[in-house]
């Protein structure tokens, strides 16, 4: 996984709440067997509308998505994270994320940042007034900076360390493989097996 320390880029205001993963990428786009090429499916139903914010010329090249609350609810499809990443997003800011989406994003290196809704409103106002406004998401300092605005955010130390170092979760777990071996010897025989 790529390291994430700090990122600065322009942003897209997505003034919608409860954006579920079926909106982020509809099921018909989930048939690929790779981790790439999902950008076409990103917000597919809304992309037909030329007025949809992502289609605006001034939002091209943006890398930070600033969304309404309850972003990423519904289906567990990690394709939603890949679609955002394939499109070019590095970070998503919202007042609340669904658990599975947040877990998926932090495992794939898409930084999801939780800020209070009032702060989101301030960022929306700033980036809508001037689409060239840069948003900095600084994981090291645990803060989002937009012009004069400095908004601290919380992220647990372990996840932050993993992202800063770009560490692969599986590799970390396999450091404890003996503990897993040992645990397995204590499992009761009545637990089911498939083979």
């Amino acid at each position: 996984m790529e390291k994430f320390v700090s990122h600065t880029g322009t942003a897209v205001p997505l003034r919608r709440s409860n954006v579920d993963t079926d909106q982020i990428i509809p099921a018909v786009y989930l048939k690929r067997v790779t981790r790439t090429g999902f950008e076409d499916g990103l917000f597919a139903a809304w992309r037909n509308d030329p007025e949809f914010v992502l289609n605006k010329p001034e939002r091209q090249g943006a890398t930070v998505l600033v969304a309404g609350p309850d972003f990423g609810t519904g289906s567990s499809r990690e394709h939603a994270v890949w679609a955002l990443q394939n499109y070019g997003f590095k970070a998503v800011i919202s007042a609340r994320f669904a658990d599975i989406f947040r877990g998926n994003s932090l495992k794939s290196g898409l930084l999801t940042v939780v800020l209070p809704q009032e702060t989101i409103e301030q960022i929306w106002t700033a980036i809508e007034a001037d689409p060239a406004t840069e948003v900095t998401v600084d994981l090291e300092a645990r803060e989002v900076r937009v012009g004069e605005l400095v908004a601290p955010f919380e992220i647990d130390d372990y996840t932050r360390w993993r992202l800063l170092e770009g560490l692969d979760d599986i590799g970390l777990t396999l450091r404890n493989v003996e503990t897993i071996d040992e645990f397995e010897t204590t499992r009761p025989s009545f637990k089911p097996a498939t083979l």
Partner: peptide, 11 residues
């Protein structure tokens, strides 16, 4: 998610 599927398959 799929990253976790891989994690469980491996560990």
């Amino acid at each position: 998610g799929t990253s976790e599927v891989e994690h469980v398959l491996a560990t």
